[in-house]
C-alpha cells in the first residue's frame, strides 16, 4: 500500500533521511521508532508532501506522491496528525469533525449551512468517545481529548492510510490506554503508521515495528524481535544487550 524506495532528504547538508526503504502492506498497524533525529517525522513529512525528497520514490496505492501538493495527497486518502495537535479552537467539536468530513465537497457546496450531523461525523464522535463534548468549542478540550479529536477528524475523512505522529505524547496513563484501544480498533479497518517514543505503549499495542536510525531503516520485525536485537539496543537505548527495553528514550 505504502512504499518508499531509497528516499533521501537533506537539510543544509544534514541527511535527515539517507536511503530509506519501507513497505507497509494494506491493513497493517506499523510502529515507527528511533532516537531523536532518526528521521521519523521527516519520513511522515515526505509521505504527506510537506517535505520534498532529494531522491527516491514514494508510492501509495500505485500512485507516485512526490511532487504532489499536501491537499492533493490527502484527497488520495492519506491523513496525518501532528506532534502538537492543532484543532480549531473557535469551532465546536462537531464543526471540527464536519469540516474534516466535508473536504471532498466543491467550494460552492460549502456555502450551505450544516444541517445535523453526517454519518461519518457521528461515527467519529462515537469512536473517539467525544459525544458528550460535541457542541463545546474545541478550545476547552484537554490535551488528550484534542489528540482524539484530531484522530476523529482523520477518521471522518475516511482515509485509507493514517499517519499518526506521537499520538500519546504528554498523555496520562489512562489516556494512553484509551488511545491504544482506539488505535487497535482503527487498525482493524485502516492501514496505520504510528510514530512513537513510548516503549511501554509500544509493547502493549504494537505488532510490527520499524526502527529508524540516522536516516536509515535499522531493523524491522515484531516487538519482541526488535527489542532483543543488539543493534537496536545499542543505538536506540545505549544499553547492554541483556538489559530489557523499558524506558522512553
Amino acid at each position: 500500500m505504502l512504499e518508499l524506495r531509497d528516499v533521501q532528504v537533506a537539510f543544509d547538508g544534514f541527511r535527515a533521511l539517507d536511503g530509506v526503504n519501507l513497505t507497509v502492506p494494506e491493513g497493517e498497524l506499523r510502529f515507527l521508532i528511533g532516537p531523536n533525529g532518526a528521521g521519523k517525522t521527516t519520513l511522515i513529512d515526505v509521505v504527506t508532501g510537506l517535505t520534498r525528497p532529494a531522491a527516491g520514490s514514494v508510492r501509495f496505492a500505485g500512485q507516485d506522491l512526490v511532487g504532489r501538493k499536501e491537499h492533493q495527497i490527502v484527497r488520495l486518502g492519506v491523513g496525518r496528525t501532528f506532534q502538537t495537535s492543532v484543532v480549531f479552537e473557535e469551532l465546536t467539536v462537531v464543526e471540527n469533525l464536519d469540516l474534516a468530513a466535508s473536504f471532498r465537497e466543491p467550494l460552492w457546496a460549502l456555502t450551505r449551512r450544516r444541517k445535523g450531523v453526517s454519518e461519518a461525523v457521528a461515527e467519529s464522535l462515537a469512536r473517539t468517545g467525544l459525544e458528550a463534548l460535541a457542541e463545546r468549542p474545541a478550545g476547552v478540550l484537554s490535551h488528550g481529548q484534542r489528540q482524539w479529536l484530531e484522530i476523529g477528524m482523520l477518521l471522518a475523512q475516511r482515509p485509507r492510510l493514517l499517519l499518526l505522529d506521537e499520538p500519546v505524547a504528554g498523555m496520562s496513563k489512562d489516556e494512553r490506554e484509551r488511545t491504544g484501544e482506539l488505535l487497535t480498533a482503527i487498525a482493524a479497518d485502516h492501514t496505520v503508521v504510528v510514530v512513537e517514543h513510548d516503549m511501554d505503549f509500544l509493547r502493549r499495542h504494537a505488532s510490527t515495528v520499524t526502527v529508524l536510525h540516522e536516516g536509515r531503516v535499522l531493523v524491522e520485525g515484531s516487538v519482541d524481535e526488535v527489542s532483543v536485537d543488539p543493534r537496536v539496543q545499542e543505538v536506540y537505548l545505549g544499553r547492554r544487550a541483556d538489559d530489557t527495553v523499558g524506558e522512553r528514550s
Binding site: 490527502v74 480549531f88 469540516l99 477528524m153
Partner: peptide, 21 residues
C-alpha cells in the same frame, strides 16, 4: 455556513487545513 467555518479554520491553522485536504 461550512465555508465560514472553513474560513475561520484557515485563519487559525492554515497548515492544518491543508492537511484536511
Amino acid at each position: 455556513s461550512r465555508y465560514g467555518r472553513l474560513l475561520v479554520a484557515v485563519r487559525d491553522g492554515e497548515d492544518r487545513v491543508r492537511f484536511l485536504g
